[in-house]
Design a protein around this nucleic acid. Structure first.
Lengths: 159, 159
DNA sequence: AGAAATAACTTGCATATACAAGTTAATCCG
DNA sequence: CGGATTAACTTGTATATGCAAGTTATTTCT
């Protein structure tokens, strides 16, 4: 079993390769469409998750959980959004360890303004993929995220 | 249509959100399994693509095309691999603009050594997802990458 | 109440990713 | 042949991502 066999086997089956490659291609398409409003796809996604919280507010822990994102990554991803004034971060009054991320009025406006651009990207991509494959992809991705998250939490499968 | 409606719509359907979230979860699992050999999943993926070229060599342009990756990203992703001595970069003799990326002997050894760890990750993940959903995901991701790449190249759908 | 453990983050460090602008080499064309 | 164009990268700048280690606040336990 030399390196060529190994490479053949891994390249033929690797889900990480495929998931990342597809994510790159899809992200580029959304980013292009969102360019006019000056927000990246990942940023709009974060704003969505914040907006859907009570009072358009989420704790960092909740956000990390929702996004399946390391909290340390979240800390930094929020920085440009805070600088842009679309979110504000404060400490919880009831538990001062907790940081609450809130959508500002500016943020609400920007998010509402993002929708038509997002729609355009979404329409373009589903047209490119085809309706059926797009739905299949969506379902497969959701299933993967859910089961992987569950597995991370379970003690026995870790490493 | 306020920001809340917008957030609901986008969160409910966004493929970018889902693709990136799933890619993160999957990547974490592969990275964990590959830890012992000191290579990340993305790096092993790159090495695979190089290994499968003639003489275990690829030009940067070929690599970027295969990986659906910006060539500027590729330049930097190759850096740590070069530093680690698993690849070597040289100029093509026939076209001195072209950079040829070659797997070194060390690289071949490391890649072969990665296989069992990769297998472990792959087995764990397919077990977590289930065989059928894992295959569906793989097919959906490949289809997405292929069609998106084709669309990027076609002149009319761009932006 | 006070020490120990835990929870929720932040920071340090390293890699991953992309667009725009710059560089070098090949090709095209008058 | 020589200027203009194109091709293949690299660099500058900024965001995205994760692990390990550090910080601050709460909880637990004696």
């Amino acid at each position: 079993m030399d390196h060529l066999d190994a490479a053949r086997i891994m390249a033929a089956d690797c889900l990480c390769y495929r998931a990342r490659r597809a994510a790159r291609a899809i992200t580029r398409a959304y980013d292009t469409a969102l360019r006019p409003i000056g927000l990246q796809a990942t940023q709009v996604t974060l704003l969505n998750a914040i907006a859907l919280g009570p009072e358009s507010t989420r704790s960092m822990g909740q956000l990390a959980e929702i996004m399946a994102l390391e909290i340390s990554t979240l800390t930094r991803n929020l920085r440009p959004l805070e600088r842009a004034g679309v979110i504000a971060i404060s400490r919880s009054a009831t538990d001062r360890r907790v940081r609450l991320v809130r959508l500002t009025e500016t943020g609400k406006t920007r998010l509402a303004a993002a929708l038509p651009h997002w729609r355009r990207a979404h329409a373009e991509i589903t047209a490119t993929l085809g309706d059926e494959p797009a739905r299949d992809l969506r379902i497969a991705l959701d299933h993967a995220t859910q089961t992987m998250k569950a597995a991370e939490r379970s003690p026995c499968s870790g490493t």
